[in-house]
Amino acid sequence: MTQQTPTIISRQQNMQVRRKILAVASGKGGVGKTWFSITLTHALARAGHRALLFDGDLGMANVDVQLGLDPVHDMTRVITGRLAMADAIHEVTEGGFAVLAGRSGSGGLATMTPRQADSLGRALSAIAPNYDRVILDLAAGIDGTVRALATHAGVGIVVVNDEPTSMTDAYAFIKITKQKRPDTNLRVVVNQARSHSDGERTYGALRKACESFLHIELPLLGVVRRDPWVSESIRRQTPLLARNPNAPAAQDVEAIAANLLELEQA
């Protein structure tokens, strides 16, 4: 009897679930993490995948606001075990994807402990097999709660823009993730770029910092251009891909979704 066989089987099962869960992180707030998470989930659904979006920005809970959902369930009840996670899921019919979103300003969520975040992550992993992809919109920062949720994801998408603070905060997230979970697949999305080439330059700077200081390679998943359609659709509380799928930012996110799926095929 060796350690190999059973170990590999259950590690693989565990890895399969982890690989389905994509955490969207940024370090800094306001770079467009929530908007990007929503749009990526939508793009994956449009590509024919069963996709679930989880609002892990527990203090702010702004997925429901951007989508204009009536907050039918209070995530505090899920955290405290009074509501099964599967029963808190909301279907976004116009997008063809599912959402698990917390109620804005719910005090219990803001004060969640890392241990609670961890069990929330475990509950999420338990329902992940029902979906092809689970997108996890993380809160800003790198505190214990964010990290506890992030450890359940096999892929980390780091969203940055060209502001220096976005760069340093993203770097801090990458560094701590590589320390705690070196098996996480980290990729970069540059958002709010003036142009694709501008975005690539921003990526180049972050990549260089990570190569020089952390000795890691950090692939670029794509660049999303700054686009007035984004705030327009947020104001209307309608997903951009429903409102105007030809908008530049919408096309960029669709390209990213295709890129993501292609990378996984490889």
Binding site: S10, N14, D118, R122, S125, A148, H152
Partner: peptide, 16 residues
Amino acid sequence: LEYHRVPVGLSDRLMT
């Protein structure tokens, strides 16, 4: 930890 069948929740905590 996997070999010893430590449940994923605990093993994640230990790894972290």
